[in-house]
Amino acid sequence: MDTNAPQEIARPPSPFQRFSDRTFRTVSFLFAWLTIVVVFYIVWEIGSNSAPAMQRQGLGFLSGTTWDPNTGEYGILPEIWGTLYSSLLALLIGTVFGVSVAIFLNESYLGGVVYNGLKLVGLHLHPVLGKLPAACETLLKNLVELLAAIPSVVYGLWGIFVVIPMIRGGCNWLHEHMGWFPPFSTPLSGPGMLPASLVLAVMILPTIAAISRDALATVPPKLREASYGLGATRWETLLAVILPTAAGGIFGAVVLAFGRALGETMALAMLIGNANRISVSLFSPGNTLASLLANNFAEAGGDENKVAVLMYAGLVLMAITLIVNMFGALILQRATSGLKGLN
């Protein structure tokens, strides 16, 4: 209204503006605090609901091997074993492939091949085709990220109808001919540890690839150039200079992927067979903490005792993943801060 008058432009904030500013700041501050409250509320909610089971079962819950709702005897050692075994197995496979993908992306192999191909035909400086190498690199990076975008339940379905039939023959052949070797000591009848771990490996691969690639990309180019300058081949440089420098970051990636693997539910619940047993065999069915929760919670319904026991199992899972995740985040922080001086 009075904004045309020059002296009115330079006015202090009106009481309403001051009030709304203060309100907005307070609200934003409160929501930030609410995040902390939510985390503690989650821990408290799961902790307090599992208290009755903790009193009744005590620490024997962690070492017991039977799960019998009829007698009220509960133990989750087979689940803890299955969680760790399947995750470590998946980690082993996922790390090999994930780090390979990270190196492949970071060394720009695909871009190099496309560039040399274009150079052969003399099109590498073409205004449109000249961008092809970079476009291929981006496409490959996005494809790896798409692996992470597919819902885990779809991976589970794929595991049931593709992975299990595909590996069954080979696994049973291994069992027949090398059955004396403990990991091959049982036949694969359908669901089991190996198919579950394979699918889990596919699911954690993008995590490992993305974070390892970041770690490789932060290695100062000076180091690589110095190594090439001394006459080292590409892989001598990679093995002696780049991978050791990025080792901290890659290790952090592996630990974070381990945290993801521990908490992953659906693919495992669909593929691991949900059998309450401890076995080193790759082909034997097993169970994990997350799939135990997934399978039993909906039916626990009115049985307060069973809900408490399941909450207790959830608390154990939370403790394991929290420790692993914090450890991974800490390693990553160390690894990236250590490289700052070199750049």
């Binding site: 902390i36 939510v38 985390v39 908490g263 992953e264 997350a290 899972l317 939370m318 993943t321």
Partner: peptide, 24 residues
Amino acid sequence: VVRFCAKVLSGFPSILAGVFAYGA
């Protein structure tokens, strides 16, 4: 602290979000 909590939540197993919602 909030950033740390957000990072903890982002690594939180999804099934535990279900366990929490079941309780809450």
